[in-house]
Design a binder for these strands. Structure first.
Lengths: 212, 212
DNA sequence: GTGTTAAGTTAACGATGTTATCTTTATAAA
DNA sequence: TTTATAAAGATAACATCGTTAACTTAACAC
């Protein structure tokens, strides 16, 4: 029974309801639980109606994750106001890891699964807007620390530094998310690994012996 | 037309043929191309016959990947004979990255997708056998370097060192495999990132300024 | 009133993993 | 030699999934 003629705002409301339902399934039961039928049931629609709001499942998932990419940027934003460049750098990294490990399914979706490569032109996220783009935040944090002269003099490319430390932190998160329960590995406590990784990065990049 | 009664060796041959067909699809067209029907057609059987040799798709894939886990250990084995502990450490890391990036689909399967956690008791891989278990190789390499005193004195736990450097290298590989084509990131050349990561690890872990 | 169309639904298609059931044939027992 | 058994495989079929096509219903425009 279609009560007809929805304003754009109402449409947006439905869109968001669908995304919320998908997110709920996604977070608590992983990607494979997100079937169009399950989402539809949760939101009280028929499965095919979702296609009135999203062109396909991929786009629905992408919309869900995009919203949380922005949440990542928001989560990191608070560290940007730290005045000491090195402390800012450290805190930024720690917040990144914390976000990843408290939102493992989203992190997995963002960083650990293959999508069709994302074209910034068609993304809902505004590239280079520090409110939304965590990578540009990282570049900013590293660049300002670089200008402050905290890095070893042999390191001359802030983007390369950023990509290296990102990779290191990502590796920590990715192994934890995927292999933490693997009985093959006698894992050291997560806290120890975080600390060790952070210190390796600092000693490996900073000019003088830093304190994490 | 079943010509009946296969010896164990013949059965094994079929098993391997199935695995080879699956691997072929897997390597060249990714996981999603590996359907039971596609594998069956490639090997000249009906889809349901694969279930006479593998209990389900997951086990088939696992068997394929397990075989290549051993290949990883083989690929790393050559570095174990390097006499200088630090050089051995460096070469081990470089070979690891090289294996990951020349076998991205297998690496993705091994390290970047969620399986049911792997129980060593039921694995076809012999844990702690350096011929088959790359992680135990890593522990060995790090431990011997540690005994040789190449690490900073604050680093007292070889396993923690190993897990940290593994995470760092894994991060490099994982981002490359998943996000190399992402237009969002202005990636530095892979070679530069490898070099930078290696140097960060060395400076971050080694006692005195090392040369990569 | 009468179309028109937006907002939904139901039916259905093709693909997939998987199970149940049938077919065939080589061998073991009579 | 005949016959029962079981191995090796194929066909048919089921449930589930993403997705499309076709149908229904109700609010508005004239």
């Amino acid at each position: 029974m279609p009560p007809k003629v929805k304003t754009d705002a109402e449409k947006q409301t439905v869109r968001i309801a669908i995304m919320d339902a998908a997110r709920e399934l996604f977070i608590h039961q992983g990607v494979e639980a997100v079937t169009m039928r399950a989402v539809a049931q949760r939101v009280g629609y028929s499965a095919t109606s979702l296609y009135l709001y999203f062109s396909d499942k991929e786009q629905l998932l992408r919309a869900v994750v995009d919203a949380d990419v922005i949440k990542l940027a928001q989560a990191l934003k608070s560290t940007l106001s730290i005045s000491d460049p090195q402390q800012r750098f450290v805190q930024f990294g720690q917040h990144y890891v914390q976000f990843a490990l408290t939102n493992p399914n989203h992190y997995r979706m963002m960083m650990m699964t293959q999508h069709p490569p994302c074209d910034p032109a068609f993304s809902s996220i505004e590239q280079n807007n520090p409110e939304q783009d965590a990578y540009s935040q990282l570049i900013g944090v590293v660049t300002s620390a670089w200008h402050a002269g905290v890095f070893k003099p042999t390191l001359t490319d802030p983007a390369l530094i950023a990509q290296t430390v990102w990779a290191a932190m990502h590796g920590l998160c990715a192994l934890q998310i995927n292999l933490a329960d693997d009985a093959w590995i006698n894992w050291r406590p997560l806290e120890s690994r975080m600390q060790a990784m952070l210190e390796m990065c600092l000693h490996g990049l900073m000019k003088e012996s830093p304190h994490a």
